[in-house]
């Protein structure tokens, strides 16, 4: 009995009629719409101007800050989000539908709303923040606030992807390994995680990308302070108003970097599948 054929999305075989067909033609408008602004961005700044801007401290600070905070936010998400995703996928969580909706909320909420909400919770006069203030723990307007803002809006991407990844692991595999004597930690480590790693990796990358681009919640909750809370999107926004060369340089860097990482990860995932 032959194996069932892999899903359509993963088959690398070109169609019988070739790439030039109705569907690809109908796709052109949207594809052109995506490509045009990105191309315009790259063409607008010369390599020389970009390289000279790169030496400015404002720009290097923003890049360094963006990278450290987005990576930290991603690691935080993976560490704290994996148990949550596992609980959801195995229906261990009470009020499952409520929790599910709660996790979806940060993605549909406008980031500015997320920023105001975080300020109301963790700001100096916030629900939790006021108590933390008395212990001399400041959150708003610090790098921690940047990481929290990014985690708040980006974590749902990982959690959803991980949940689906875990759910796709055949329960019988977990059960049979338990029968063979593995405790739940070993089941997770040797069976579930390896089998779902492509979903987990994909989710983590989406989280990282969203965290890197986070703006609205950051500017409201963390404020704008070069070197401390001025991430690349904030520097681009302010730079656009003041010095468009700064904005263009950072935009192209952000674009290039995101593109490279996404291509790399997709390449890895593709190789994993085949």
């Amino acid at each position: 009995m032959s194996q069932p054929s892999p899903p359509l999305t993963e088959r690398p075989i070109p169609p019988e009629r070739g790439y030039f067909n109705t569907y690809t033609l109908l796709s052109l408008p949207l594809l052109a719409f995506f490509v045009l602004p990105l191309l315009a961005l790259v063409l607008r700044i010369s390599l020389r101007d970009m390289l000279s801007s790169l030496s400015e401290p404002a720009i290097t600070q923003a890049i360094r800050l963006s990278l450290t905070t987005s990576v930290t936010a991603t690691i935080l998400t993976v560490l704290l989000g994996t148990p949550l995703a596992y609980a959801l996928s195995h229906h261990y969580m009470p009020f499952e539908r409520f929790v599910d909706t709660l996790i979806d909320l940060p993605t549909v909420l406008p980031p500015a709303v997320a920023g105001v909400a975080l300020l109301m919770a963790f700001g100096r006069r916030g629900l939790l923040g006021s108590t933390l203030e008395t212990a001399n723990i400041h959150i708003a307007f610090t790098q921690i606030a940047v990481i929290l803002a990014q985690t708040f809006v980006a974590a749902p991407f990982y959690i959803k992807a991980a949940k689906i990844g875990f759910a796709n692991v055949n329960i019988e595999l977990e059960q049979s390994s338990a029968l063979d004597g593995a405790h739940s930690g070993q089941v997770l480590r040797y069976v579930v995680l390896p089998l779902s790693r492509t979903a987990l990796l994909g989710g983590a990358v989406m989280t990282w990308a969203r965290a890197l681009g986070e703006f609205g919640a950051t500017i409201i909750f963390a404020g704008n302070f070069p070197g401390r809370t001025q991430t690349m999107p904030l520097a681009i926004y302010l730079g656009f108003q003041f010095n468009i060369e700064t904005a263009l340089t950072l935009s192209v860097i952000l674009l290039g970097f995101s593109f490279l990482v996404l291509m790399l990860v997709k390449g890895l995932l593709q190789r994993e599948i085949s």
Binding site: F141, I219, A222, G223, N224, F225, P226, T229, Q241
Partner: peptide, 12 residues
Amino acid sequence: DDILRNVMSYEE
């Protein structure tokens, strides 16, 4: 400089 050290955020 003392004042600038106290600045938390530069708003737009």
